[in-house]
Design a protein around this nucleic acid. Structure first.
Lengths: 207, 207
DNA sequence: TAAAAAATACCTGAAACGAGGGATGGGAAT
DNA sequence: ATTCCCATCCCTCGTTTCAGGTATTTTTTA
């Protein structure tokens, strides 16, 4: 019997998933959580075989969380269940050691299959995820760039429409420093103006 | 018996909702759809009492769709069930004649109550929605600005990082014209640079 | 505690953007 | 038939951003 933890912030989704898993003979919903903190707490008590994890959680970003959990519990199979169909998101979580990625518009069977496949030691992606993952073309970063605390702060303020001078005032630093952070951000995102970054930052919920 | 149509692009959510409605004596899930087109088609055949509608649909934007449906079937009660917790989104759909707004992180009881309340002729909002709706402070537009086809096109290209000159080249128009569109966009969103717009446009999925 | 990463600051010149105008023609709706 | 909206184009000037560096001081992390 495969024991599964489920973490998603929408009660209706949790209901749907619990029902789904209960219909199968070999899979048991062993824990249901609505945020990252509760999930981490429960893992300290008891380690299931599989964790079905959403990315948009109220407290911790699911991408970070997947890395953290994988590092602490390397035996635990993690399957991401998310609406995020951006290549950078998919590649980022897979780099974090995740074992499966299923888009939320998938049917229930895909989720059951994902659980079984990762228990066999395979990497599972639903069809659409695989397509996106393999697509070479595309614009935008291949993975989500890692940005520092200060960079996130500057990005936040740029997104709110503040100029470098205004940001410098707010943070009590030199405008030159703000400019440097901007330049570093543009380099990390591989673009040549801030407008192009904001789209990704909002899309990836980096702010 | 209250007949309910449900439209949401996630099968798992649909399952959860169907189960939820079936637990109640007085509410009947009468139709389940994964996109706007199917919903419109079904409405031509048969009109339920209530439509539970998601905003993020693959084919038609739920905000537009709610307006269209309300105009055609004014008797039909529409309840929006969405992750969008932005004031501008809530106010926009309510202006479209929607009868209820429930956030997706609500519990099942909230949804059942929403159905019953709107059948009584009341406007229903879950607690969190009401809070956001009533919040006077806040930054950002109160409703989602209506932008023209051309403006959307320019906004799209700005978001992708193109300069005005590059956009002018692409669209075979004068850079002056591009500048004019930018200015009109900034006026509509009530901001003074494009960066501030992109955040909303991405958040509201205007692109 | 040594090395790496992050945050800070400075300089210059070119390119792009924003604020503030005015103006015209075409098409849709009333 | 006329008004309104949309898309188009033009001009100027000041501000802001971007690209190209270099360099020092804190923090973190290994």
């Amino acid at each position: 019997m495969t024991e599964v933890f489920i973490t998603d912030d929408h009660p209706i989704v949790l209901d749907g998933l619990r029902n789904l898993l209960e219909t199968s003979e070999d899979i048991l919903p062993a824990g249901i959580f609505q945020n990252g903190t509760d999930t981490l707490k429960a893992l300290k008590e008891r380690e299931p075989d599989v964790l079905l994890l959403d990315i948009n959680l109220p407290d911790i970003n699911g991408i970070e969380l997947s890395k953290q959990i994988h590092d602490t519990y390397p035996e635990l199979k993690i399957i991401i269940l998310s609406v995020h169909n951006e290549k950078a998101v998919i590649r980022s979580v897979l780099q974090n050691g995740v074992n499966g990625y299923v888009l939320k518009n998938s049917i229930g069977d895909d989720i059951l299959e994902a659980v079984r496949k990762v228990m066999d030691g395979d990497l599972y992606m639903c069809r659409q995820t695989r397509q996106i993952y393999e697509s070479e073309d595309s614009n935008g970063p291949d993975v989500i760039p890692k940005i520092t605390r200060r960079e996130r702060e500057i990005l936040q303020l740029v997104t709110e429409g503040y100029t470098s001078a205004q940001i410098a005032d707010k943070l009590f630093i030199s405008p030159y420093t703000v400019e440097t952070h901007r330049k570093n951000l543009m380099e990390k995102f591989d673009v040549n103006n801030m407008t192009a970054i904001i789209r990704y930052a909002t899309e990836f919920k980096l702010l």
